[in-house]
Structure formats: structure tokens, C-alpha cells
């Protein structure tokens, strides 16, 4: 991964580039959630003990490919999407994939600060 590519996939997006997703939380229900970077998505997709992320995987794949500009990551998400597992398991499978990509990018951008990751 080149520094330019690492900067590209970790950049903060403009408003036109956001990923629209949602969070499910009882009893509040569904609330919209606009995601402006891969890092923000990484936090979002983890959910919490009392909330769930909610995202359309086809749209996610498209966003990673066309907006973030990371076809490799988009392909990995496409693989996850085709697996015969439930939505929550798909989210769980997504976390380490995105995390590994972020770590890789960060190690390129800030090789001196590995232990901070």
C-alpha cells in the first residue's frame, strides 16, 4: 500500500460522499447515521451491547469501491455478503476485515507510532 493510497482510504469524506446507515436501539428505534470515513465506519459496525448497526451490504460494497476507492476491501465485503450467515454475523465478519485494512494504512502513514494503534 502506498502512502497516497493509505491517505486516500482514510481521508475524511465530503457530504456528498457519505454512507447512509442506521443504528437500531431499543426503545428509540431506528435512527439515521451518516458516515464520513472508513474509521468512522469501523466504529459504527462494531455496535454496542445495546445497539446494532444497520447497513445495506450492497450499498456498502459500492461505497467502498466507488467512494472510498478501495476495491480490495469492497471485494472482501462482497465475499462476506454472499455467505449464508445472518446479518449480525456478517457485521462481525466485517469488523476484522476493515480493522486490518485500517491498521495497514496506518502503519504506512505513521510507521513510528505502531504501538499507539
Amino acid at each position: 500500500m502506498t502512502p497516497e493510497f493509505a491517505r486516500k482510504i482514510t481521508r475524511k469524506l465530503t457530504l456528498d460522499e457519505e454512507l447512509t446507515a442506521a443504528i437500531l436501539r431499543r426503545p428509540r428505534g431506528i435512527f439515521s447515521c451518516n458516515i464520513f470515513s472508513l474509521a468512522e465506519f469501523h466504529y459504527f459496525i462494531q455496535g454496542t451491547r445495546q445497539s446494532l448497526p444497520s447497513v445495506n451490504f450492497s450499498l456498502l460494497e459500492q461505497w467502498l469501491s466507488e467512494t472510498i476507492g478501495d476495491q480490495f476491501l469492497a471485494d472482501q465485503i462482497a465475499d462476506i455478503e454472499t455467505q449464508d450467515v445472518c446479518f449480525i454475523d456478517k457485521c462481525k465478519l466485517t469488523i476484522p476485515v476493515v480493522e486490518a485494512r485500517l491498521r495497514e494504512a496506518y502503519s504506512v502513514l505513521h510507521p513510528e507510532n505502531q504501538d499507539l494503534i
Binding site: 435512527f31 466504529y43 459504527f44 485500517l102
Partner: peptide, 27 residues
Amino acid sequence: QTSVWYLGAVRSYKFGGNAKLSLAKTG
């Protein structure tokens, strides 16, 4: 809902493009 009204803004501000923050267990 009172516990989430500002969460989206907090998340966007803190993470923006910063990979380090999201990996550093800042939940």
C-alpha cells in the same frame, strides 16, 4: 434518545479520517 442525540456528531468529529482513534477503543 437523550443518550444519543449528539452521538453522530461526536463520532464524526472524533473520527473524521482518523484511523488511529477508531482502533484505539475510544468507545
